[in-house]
């Protein structure tokens, strides 16, 4: 399977603050990969590195086999880019921006843009600067669909969108990617709606990659365990139990292990626990389980 995105040993600092050390990942063709993380974990930084707008301290990335700082116009035409906040050339109106972009892309699908815009109650002469964030997101998405890229890179696409626009965005994106074997790389700090969209999931923590797994594997195997314990349970920091915490004698922990193994770990050294319950998790709950609440 062709690797569309390849990042190898990326290390980057802002001043003295470490953002990543030796971050490596690959995105194969046809996958939707979500890079999830709290604010400030470097999601936008990796998008900037991928597109050649930031030189990392070390390491390299490639898109379609081309180094990030040497992307040819032909490769750029195959990559659709959405900037954080749905930034667009806001001095254009709805019609002008379509006219502007159409001349750059040989396979421009004008009807895809106008089809999406028909859902918005805006006239063709409305300026983008006067639109709401949701309306701007649809203009940006419409332009991406019209470009018909092989790879979409979307930076925090859910930012500022109400649930309706977010759902609309996700549904269109899913349809686009699955129908034509397109690759999507997206970042988000809002995890709702993600589980119906992304195939693979990278979860970032401050300075490191926490997890890179298929979304299904996380949803099927990662659970929350709640139990009562009057003392401190054993083995809460051995790497298989995540973010163990308590309020009074009510404890919770998260793990990929089955219930029996979690019970064994917690009761080692003769510690007594009771009422152990296993909960299935949404992706958002799993994200909190992996990264912690704070």
């Amino acid at each position: 399977m062709e690797m569309i995105i390849r990042c190898e040993n990326i290390t980057h600092y802002y001043g003295n603050r470490l953002i990543y050390e030796n971050l490596s990942f690959e995105v194969p063709q046809g996958k939707i990969l979500g890079l999830l993380g709290k604010n400030g974990t470097g999601k936008t930084t990796i998008i900037n590195i991928l597109n050649g707008y930031l030189k990392p301290r070390s390491g390299s990335c490639s898109l379609f086999g081309e180094k990030m700082e040497e992307l040819t116009p032909q490769t750029k035409a195959r990559v659709g880019l959405l900037l954080e906040g749905h930034i667009q050339h806001s001095y254009f109106n709805v019609k002008q921006i379509e006219k502007f972009y159409s001349r750059f892309f040989p396979n421009w699908k004008k009807e895809a843009y106008y089809e999406l815009l028909r859902k918005l109650k805006v006239s063709e002469t409305q300026k983008i600067s006067t639109m709401s964030c949701g309306q701007r997101s649809q203009v940006a998405l419409g332009l991406l669909f019209a470009q018909d890229p092989d790879l979409m890179i979307l930076d925090d696409f859910s930012m500022g969108l109400d649930p309706g626009y977010r759902r609309l965005f996700v549904e269109y994106l899913k349809e686009f990617a699955s129908a034509e074997n397109k690759t999507v790389f997206l970042t988000s700090h809002i995890i709702q709606d993600m589980e119906m969209l992304i195939d693979d999931c990278i979860i970032m923590d401050y300075g490191r990659l926490l997890l890179h797994k298929p979304t299904k594997e996380i949803l099927d195997n990662f659970h929350r365990f709640r139990f009562t314990c009057e003392t401190t349970p054993a083995d809460t920091s051995n790497g298989t139990l995540w973010n163990t915490g308590h309020i009074g004698s009510s404890w919770e922990t998260y793990s990929f292990l089955p219930k029996e193994e979690v019970t064994q770990l917690l009761t080692r050294n003769g510690v007594s626990i009771s009422n152990l319950e296993q909960d299935s998790l949404s992706l958002e709950d799993a994200f909190i389980g992996l990264t912690g609440k704070y």
Binding site: Y53, Q74, K76, V79, L81, L83, G85, I87, Q88, F104
Partner: peptide, 18 residues
């Protein structure tokens, strides 16, 4: 200034042209 505001220049430079 419109290009540098919100770093819109990234969109311009991302267009398929050197």
């Amino acid at each position: 200034v419109p290009e540098i505001t919100n770093k819109r220049l990234k969109l311009t430079l991302h267009l398929p042209m050197a």
